[in-house]
Write a protein that binds this DNA or RNA. Structure first.
Length: 461
RNA sequence: AGAGGGUUGGGUGAGUGGCUUAAACCAGCAGUUUGCUAAACUGUCGUACGCCUAAAAGUGUACCGGGGGUUCGAAUCCCCCACCCUCUACCA
């Protein structure tokens, strides 16, 4: 009885991705969605110092200056609106007067009054233009502002400033002659990068035989576990329109990182977070619907422009990968409890897979643009002797809800912005990398017990 | 893809330039009546942004798929776009 939201979740089933030619377009400018809720401005006005402090924690430049600009423009916007509205009110009442005169047959009187309206009309038109420009300016400015971090988020510039919250599981000792996963996949012929390069390009591997079955098994395992945890399964489109991109915050921030089909102006999703959260765009849900918990499996696509280097060999970084994503929409007062629950849930998956992991609390500078608080889960990959990020669990508080216009109606009948959260549960490639590396023996690679029913085999050999 | 028909509040659905302040009904909410349920009756019932308030109340503007235009005045007339339905064609 988790969330039967009035037909909200009827998602189109599959799309013919093959029929569409994708064009990669780093900078595509077009109209941004209209209608901007002003609640974010209200927050900035009422909590100016908190907002400035928060952005500074992110190492965000010119925080004070930009936020002051927001307030200044908003002030002008209000003044312009008041002026415009009162003139429009006058015009409306004159029009009514004219209507009454015409019906009474007093044409001459009506003509006299008309002269007055033409003056007002011009003024209204000018004010209307000013107002639209101010709103657009404000909107563009707000789009450049990232979320304000939760007060408990540590300040910091890079990943080196993240806090390790906990470590769990033991790091295996591997036999002499162990290999990193990019060698193992060749040895057992289960994932083929060369073949992927031939048909698409670098970063699009082909999974073969037990490698393909491992993918399928993991996806099913993750979906089943989420179901048991009360998540409602959805299968969303993997192409989204521009408005969806703005609503969850990928646009304009990640413009160049998404594959873009220019002919239809659609984006290939970088994460299922985008379509699943957007299911609730523009909705006013009932407080009693909370918590809304959805899970979905999708392939994810990332251009990863300019981010290739020494540490991204093999499965460590791909252009296309599979991920199961969990999304929650909650009451503002319950969102941090939900975050902890999600964190525990993801950790449970890693425990079941027998992978040693640690949990990081991200510092302001390393958090995503839209997040107020993020836990990263990292798995230790024994042959590479390094930690690999496999999940990111975030609370966006009202940041996405503000753009989505996702509100709930409380007992007092008032509408309030909800909180949105999401987490990877889980992303496959690095899980596969660490499973292969950590479980390698001379004989072959032993699959975790929990996966065997999903795979139909115990060893890759 | 071609032709035709559509898109109005949570739902059904009226509305061909001013009597619309978007009718009516259903659902919802509050109340009255009632031994309970049901029914009946009365009232209420959209969203956003302003103004005014300590707050409420009140009040202004905008919104009838989206954008633009004509007009003193547009749900209504004109143009562009999106989506839905039917038929034809094609196709997993």
């Amino acid at each position: 009885m988790v969330n039967k939201n009035r037909g909200l979740l009827k998602v189109p089933f599959s799309i013919q991705t093959t029929a569409i030619i994708f064009t990669i377009f780093a900078l595509y400018n077009s109209n941004t969605p209209k209608q901007l809720t002003m609640l974010q401005v209200n927050f900035i006005r009422d909590n100016f110092d908190i907002a400035v402090g928060g952005l500074k924690k992110r190492n965000f430049p010119q925080a004070e200056n930009l936020l002051s600009q927001v307030l200044e423009i908003d002030k002008k916007r209000k003044e312009t609106q008041s002026h415009r509205d009162s003139l429009q009110a006058e015009s409306n009442s004159i029009s009514k007067e004219i209507g009454a005169l015409m019906q009474a047959g007093k044409k001459e009187d009506a003509e006299k009054v008309k002269a007055r309206t033409s003056v007002i009309k011009g003024q209204v038109k000018a004010l209307e233009n000013d107002f639209d420009q101010l709103e657009e300016k404000l909107r563009q400015l707000l789009y450049t502002l990232p979320n304000i971090p939760h007060h408990s988020v540590p300040a910091g510039i890079s990943e080196e400033d993240n806090e390790v919250v906990l470590e769990n599981g033991s790091i295996p000792t591997l036999y002499e002659g162990n290999r990193p996963h990019w060698e193992l996949i060749k040895k057992y012929d289960i994932i083929d990068f060369e073949l992927g390069t031939k048909i698409t390009g670098a970063g699009f591997p082909v999974y073969k035989g037990k490698g393909a079955r491992l993918q399928r098994g993991l996806v099913n395992f993750f979906l089943d576990e989420a179901f048991k945890q009360g998540y409602y399964e959805v299968q969303p489109p993997i192409l989204v329109n521009e408005e969806s991109g703005y609503a969850t915050g990928q646009l304009p921030d990640k413009e160049g990182q998404m594959y873009h089909d220019a002919s239809e102006n659609l984006y290939l999703i970088p994460t299922a977070e985008v379509p699943i959260t957007n299911l609730y765009r523009g909705e006013i849900v009932n407080e009693s619907d909370f918590p809304i918990k959805n899970v979905g499996f999708t392939p994810c696509f990332r251009r990863e422009a300019g981010s290739w280097g020494a540490h991204v060999r093999g499965l460590n970084r791909l252009h296309q990968f599979d991920k199961v994503e969990v999304v929650q929409i909650t009451h503002p007062e319950k969102s941090y409890a939900a975050l902890e629950e999600m964190s525990k849930y993801v950790q449970g998956l890693l425990q079941k897979l027998g992978l040693p992991y640690r949990v990081l609390k991200l510092c302001g500078g390393d958090m995503g643009f839209t997040s107020a608080f993020t836990y990263d889960m990292e798995v230790y990959s024994a042959a590479q002797e390094r930690w690999l990020e496999v999940s990111s669990v975030s609370n966006f508080e009202t940041y996405q809800a503000n753009r989505l216009k996702l509100r709930f109606r409380g007992e007092d009948k008032k509408t309030t912005l909800a909180h949105t959260l999401n987490g990877s549960a889980l992303a496959l490639p690095r899980i596969v990398a660490s499973l292969l590396e950590n479980n390698q023996h001379e004989k072959g690679i032993k699959m975790p017990e929990v996966l065997v029913p999903y795979l139909g085999f115990e060893w890759i050999e």
